[in-house]
Design a protein around this nucleic acid. Sequence first.
DNA 1: AACATTAGTTAGTCTAACTAACTAATGTAA
DNA 2: TTACATTAGTTAGTTAGACTAACTAATGTT
Lengths: 137, 137
Amino acid sequence: MQPFFTTLKLISRPYSSKMQDLLLPFGLTEVQWGLIRILYEEGPSTFTDIATYWRVEKPSVTPIAQKLIEQELIYIGIGHDKRQKVMHLTNNGVEKYKETKQIVDTLQKNLLIGITEQERQITEQVLEKLLVNLKGR
Amino acid sequence: MQPFFTTLKLISRPYSSKMQDLLLPFGLTEVQWGLIRILYEEGPSTFTDIATYWRVEKPSVTPIAQKLIEQELIYIGIGHDKRQKVMHLTNNGVEKYKETKQIVDTLQKNLLIGITEQERQITEQVLEKLLVNLKGR
DNA sequence: AACATTAGTTAGTCTAACTAACTAATGTAA
DNA sequence: TTACATTAGTTAGTTAGACTAACTAATGTT
């Protein structure tokens, strides 16, 4: 039982550090990349959307978005609800994501060497279930 | 492919926060608990052993051990090699681990609800393979 | 004997999280 | 419709846990 969660924690650090190394030449951190990934894959999102998805508090999102705005990879639009700020990718942002997605895919493919498609799927399902079981804050 | 690694990262945060909440009443953080866990399950270990196991740099281990020494949960012995410091659990440390292991086990059991033993095993194997594939720093 | 390596520490930095306290807009209920 | 509660986001300050660089002391190697 323990090795399960222990290993999970153990993977997280070196994976992040690989990602950071990979993204450094593009001027992105792992979480910044994670944010543009969501905006590309899921579409424009509010700060609260992101905080909910990541399961972090709202103030944690602000500085990550700030830096992407400075780099002109995202911009803020106002929603129908005037309290909301909706983040969108700029054209630069879309380009940057497409560029980096390729190398991230390559990393991920290499990490999955020796793992069958079926094993990957089962693991994905298990991880999704864990996430659901973790929901109760 | 992406959901796989995305989900993995997503699990890590709320899992840690559950662990922190659980361990707070015992005066332990998640990593401190992780260290006494190793000392109990694997036996006395040097700072370098821990750094290697966790895949962190050596200075990261020092403050975590410090706090356990202050709490008198571990003590430092000198190895045959006089450069080495070997961490051992004190009797208090053993007690504290046994106490907390129970509640950690309970948490982990609850998180695994809805996951079959076979799925759990496959996932564990996949996580181990990922860890190996990540080895190249 | 001289030099290189290894174990661990100290000092200082960084990222990404947190809480508390706030403003402004929206929703609800008298 | 006015009063109050809630929600979206920010600002300021803190924290945990990582990092690098530079160091001491012990051990290995040539």
